[in-house]
Structures are given as structure tokens and as C-alpha cells.
Design a protein around this nucleic acid. Sequence first.
DNA 1: CGGCGTTTTGAGGCGCATCAACCTGAGTGG
DNA 2: CCACTCAGGTTGATGCGCCTCAAAACGCCG
Lengths: 242, 242
Amino acid sequence: MNSLSIPPAHLRDTLSRQAYFRGWDAGVLSRLAMGASQFSVGKDMPVLARGDVPEHLYLVVSGQVRLFIPLANGMERIVSLVMPGEGFGEVALLLGASLPYGVAACRDSHIIMVNARTYLAELSGAPALLEHTLRLVARQHQATLLDMEICSQPSSLLRVVRFLMNQRPCAEVDDGYEITLPGRKRDIAAKLGLTQETFSRMLSFLGQQGVIAMQGGAIRIGDGSKLRLMDASICAKEMQRA
Amino acid sequence: MNSLSIPPAHLRDTLSRQAYFRGWDAGVLSRLAMGASQFSVGKDMPVLARGDVPEHLYLVVSGQVRLFIPLANGMERIVSLVMPGEGFGEVALLLGASLPYGVAACRDSHIIMVNARTYLAELSGAPALLEHTLRLVARQHQATLLDMEICSQPSSLLRVVRFLMNQRPCAEVDDGYEITLPGRKRDIAAKLGLTQETFSRMLSFLGQQGVIAMQGGAIRIGDGSKLRLMDASICAKEMQRA
DNA sequence: CGGCGTTTTGAGGCGCATCAACCTGAGTGG
DNA sequence: CCACTCAGGTTGATGCGCCTCAAAACGCCG
């Protein structure tokens, strides 16, 4: 976790390029950049521990960061994979609460941290920003519930199928579509509440059933209806058991 | 789900008594009451299905309501138990999205629904309300993550122990404390990601270990440190396995 | 006291985690 | 250009824990 010293003007430009701040006022960004600083983290190095009270808003500039809940057996349940341009920590800041998750890098990453007081000051009384942030947090909440839906399912195969269905890009090519896993398989597995072994087994099963085709980190879904069929068939099987 | 016809003035008074609207302006409440209506739901009757696009903000006046994710085997994973004075549906309204959970009554309940357009109109451009709502949603998000932490734990006993630890009231009596389960055991179990059988077994185990004492729906925790000890011991056991 | 909803207790099977070994591909240095 | 290394992924064998199913016990209200 090496902190880099970067001039505020450059920081402001970097901030303005983050998707997180799309549509934000330039003046606001300048002021945010004043109390901001950038640092780098090596792969799998910790950034924040669960229970820390954050004093910054965090933005992932490059690399990838995971928010995770530490489990009793030493493993992690990944709550969110944060991609470049995205941020984390607002919710805890808004409540003045401690982080409900730990933070670590999935790979070598660059992160900017923005002073909390500055951030909160800009927010308070600014309807546009408040509305923007409200929607942001609402989206995060919805996403978390979607994750919960997946990893509450009783069958591990079903979890993988549902995950793949959710990964469909908006634009679907006529002969199916291709997705790139948003991270290492171990991290995806941890997000689905599975071990990487089970995840791997389910993927190869789907492969030999002809539902998907794996080629490295990319997965081809030749026909989306096969996935839906598989989904329905698993649900039917689970229902008759109960 | 019988809708009752109640005069707006009375509705306004009822709204103002809900904890949800604590601190809200009287004028705002009057306007919200205009497009509001009240209805009653019988125990275990559905209110909304997962995927519905809600057109109202919902407030539980009496009874208890559960927000749940339907599982493939016909069971439910309860996301939240909504008590009188609390509400639900804001997040989906704010995003114009469909509900990520189904809604049903845990017992005979009275619910008020407030017209979405009215609600959103009041909110937009009102910094105080926006800030209030932002914090509300942030709290909900934190609560969801806390639930996720519990029900991601690998041991069912640990989940129950963690749940009990989270139930501690702020004021702790010197000779321990007593908690009342916030709902039926089956519902609590569904919130912890357990079957009611497993939940029952874990509770009786904790009982015969002297960690807790059950008397109907109430649970005495003679000594909180015993719970923490049990927690630590389970974690140690899980760690050594891995 | 009788009825129902809820919880408890018991027996059994299966799925996933666990552990361990092997495979693959990318990066490195001689 | 190949030998080596290491991280990430795959595959196989085993055991335990929780879900499932079934039935009895409890608590509550009429």
C-alpha cells in the first residue's frame, strides 16, 4: 500500500474521468481533489479491515478490489467486486458507521481516497448530488439483494446457472453471446458462496452438457434458452424433493 | 387483502404516528395522505410478488410483514421482517425497478400504501427529505450486509450464536438480558438461512450447554460472555479444520 | 376439553466442503 | 529456446453437516 504523491490538478482530472463522478460539477470535483490522495496496492494485499471506521471515500482507478466478509473458517464471502471507475465506502461514511466488510485488492491496483469531511460537506444540502447518491446506494442495495438471491439457492448448480443468466450483456448476438468472467474464478466462486472446486465442477458439467463452452476466462453461451431450460429443470427437481 | 376506506384526515394522523415519518413536515404528510389508502392482510397471505413493479410506498401499521426471496425448493429466504411503524418499497420506487423480493404478512396486518408519484414528487428537490431517505436506505443496506454476514457463516450453530449476539438490547441488565424473538421461529430460521428444524436443534443445544435459557418465545441470556466464548470456540474449531 | 398452528425430536440420505494430487499457462532466467 | 517456477485451475476420493421426511409434543384459544 504505497501512497503516491500526485498534484491536485492531476488528481482532479483523474477523478473527473471516473464513471463514479459522471455528471458531477467540475467545481465540486476540484474541491474533492484538494483533500484527495492516491496509492497503490499489491495483489491480494489488504486495504481496510472489517470494522474499521473509514475516513475516506475510495475510488478504484485501476485493477480490481474486493469487498468481502471474513468467514469463521478463514475463507471469504465476497460481497462486491469493484471495477475501475467505481467506488466504495459511501454507506459507512453517511452513517458514520464501521465498515461491514473487509477490503482487499484482487490484483495490483491504484486507488484514490477522498477526504470524508470534504465529501460529506459537498453532499449536504446539494439536492442534485443527494439524489444522485441516493440512487447509487439504492442500486447497490438492489445488487446486494440479487446476490443474496443467487447464493441462497439450495443447489450449487442452480447458483452457477443463475449467475450466468445475470451476466448476459444487453446486446445479444444472434448465435448466442460471450461473457468474460469479471475476475478470477476463485473470486467469482466466493461471490456465489461456493468453493472454487465446486464452481469449477459445475462449469465443466455445464460444458459437457453443451449449455456453455469455456475457453480460458471467456465463456460462450451458444443458446440462452438452454440455460433457461437447465434452470427450469433444476427448479423442477428441487420442487419435487420438497 | 381487504382495502378499507378511511378519510384522508385520519390517514394523515396515522401516517404521522409511524416511526418511518418521524421528523417529517406536517404539510408533506398531509399531501402524502391524499393519495394514500389502507388495507388489511390475513396471516401468510401475499401482498406483492417478486418482480412486481410497485406503484406505492408501503407502511406497516400493525402486524408484521416479511420480505423474502422465493427459493427453488419452494422455501423462502427472508430478507427482512418489517415491524409496525416501518415501511418498504422505497428502493424499487427510486429506481423505477421491479421488487427483488416478494412480500407477505407474517400475521394479520394493516398496511398503508402511499402513491408513488406523490412520494417521489415530495422527495425530489427537498434536501432534508433526500438526506433522511439516503440515510434510511444506507441503514437498510448495512442491515442487509449484516444479515449476509450471519447467513454466510459455514456453521449453523455459529449463525444462531451470531444472531443472538446481534439481538442484544442496548441496555444490558447486570445479570444478563432477555430477548424476545422478533417473529415466529420459522421466520427467524428463514432469515438465518436455516430450516426451522436446524434452528430449533441449535437453540436446544445452546440451552443444554447453559448458554441460554428458553421460555417460549423469550430467551434469557444469563451471561453474554458465554455467548462470546461459544462464538470463539466455534471459530477456533472451524479454523483448525481449514 | 378439543382443535389447530407451531415447535420439537428422531432417523436417514445426499450434497458440498475438505483434502490432496495433478494439470495448465504465463513469466523468468540461463 | 528450453528448464524451471509459481499461481491459478482442475480432478478425484472421502466424510460430515444440514436438509428431508415423518411423527410426536407443546402451547394457545375457543
